[in-house]
Design a protein around this nucleic acid. Structure first.
Lengths: 142, 142
DNA sequence: AGTATATAATTGTATTATACAACTATTATT
DNA sequence: AATAATAGTTGTATAATACAATTATATACT
C-alpha cells in the first residue's frame, strides 16, 4: 500500500507539474507569471525583503530573483527601499499597483482551481489543500 | 470554507510547481527529465504511439513532442516503427534500454517522494495520491 | 589605517521546455 | 490531375532557471 501510493504520487506529481508548468508559463493565467505571482505574494504576506532573503525562501538562485524583481520594479509592481545601514542592500516592497494586480491574479487563479474542482466535494477540496500544503512544507524541510 | 480551500489550493499549487519545476528541470532527479520520463512512461503503459497522439495525451504541441521523441531516439531509448499504411506516420516504441532507464528513474523518483513523505501516515500518503490523481484528471477534462 | 576577505546584488552566458509558424512529404478529396 | 488535409520536422522566439564573473560596499585582521 505504501509503495502503491508512492508510485501514484510520483507519477501524478510529474503529470501535474508538466501540465501546469506549460499552462502557466506559456498560456499564462493572468497578468503575472507564476514567479512574479509568488514573489508578490510573499512580499505581500511576509513583508518587504531583499533579493537574497527571497531567493532563500523560494530556494531559487539569487540571480533569478534579482531579475524577477527588476522586471516587477520596471512594471511598477515593486519598489526598492535602500537599506539604511547597508549600502549594498535593498528591501523590495509591493506598490499599490502591485497589490491590485496580485489581487486580480489571485482571483483568476482561484476561479480556475474552482472550475477544475467544481464537481468535488468540499471535503475533498479541503483535504487536498491541506495535504498539498503539507507536501510543500515537507519538501522544504528536506 | 470553499473559498478558503481554493485559496490554499491555488497558492500551494503554484508553490509546488515552481519548486519541483526547478528541481527537476535543472537539478534533475535521474537520467531522464520530466518530459522524457512521462513520454517513456506513457509508451510503456499505453503502448507505441505516434507523435500526434502523444502530443494529444499530454496537451503539448506536436513540435515539442517531436523533439522529445527525437532526443530519446537518439539516446537509444525509443525507436520508430514506420506505419504500414501511412508513409508519413511512425509509431514510437520503447527500447530495452529505455525500459531499463525508465525503471531506474521511476525508482529514484519514488524514493525521493518517499523521503519527503517519510513522516506521513500511510493514510495521508494514500489520500494525497488519490486526490492528486483526481486533480490531474479534472484538469484534463476541462 | 590599510589590506584582504566576505557579502548583496547585478549582469553575462548557457540550457531547457515550450509554442507558433513555415516547411516537407505523404494521403485523401474533389 | 489538382487541391486540400495531415503527420511529422525544423526554424525561431520566449521564459525561467543556474552558474560564473563582476561591482560596490562592508567586515575582519594585523
Amino acid at each position: 500500500m505504501y509503495d502503491d501510493s508512492l508510485e501514484i504520487l510520483e507519477l501524478e506529481l510529474a503529470v501535474l507539474i508538466r501540465r501546469i508548468t506549460s499552462a502557466t508559463s506559456h498560456k499564462k493565467i493572468g497578468n503575472l507569471d507564476r514567479s512574479a505571482y509568488l514573489l508578490l505574494h510573499q512580499i505581500d504576506t511576509k513583508g518587504a525583503a531583499g533579493v537574497k532573503a527571497l531567493a532563500g525562501e523560494f530556494q531559487l538562485d539569487i540571480s533569478t530573483v534579482s531579475r524577477q524583481a527588476a522586471s516587477l520594479e520596471q512594471k511598477g509592481l515593486l519598489y526598492r527601499i535602500p537599506d539604511e545601514t547597508d549600502g549594498r542592500a535593498y528591501s523590495l516592497q509591493i506598490t499599490e499597483q502591485g497589490l491590485k494586480e496580485l489581487k486580480e491574479d489571485k482571483h483568476m487563479r482561484m476561479k480556475r482551481v474552482g472550475e477544475v474542482t467544481r464537481n468535488w466535494t468540499d471535503d475533498e477540496r479541503q483535504t487536498f489543500a491541506i495535504l498539498l500544503k503539507k507536501y510543500n512544507k515537507s519538501v522544504l524541510n528536506d
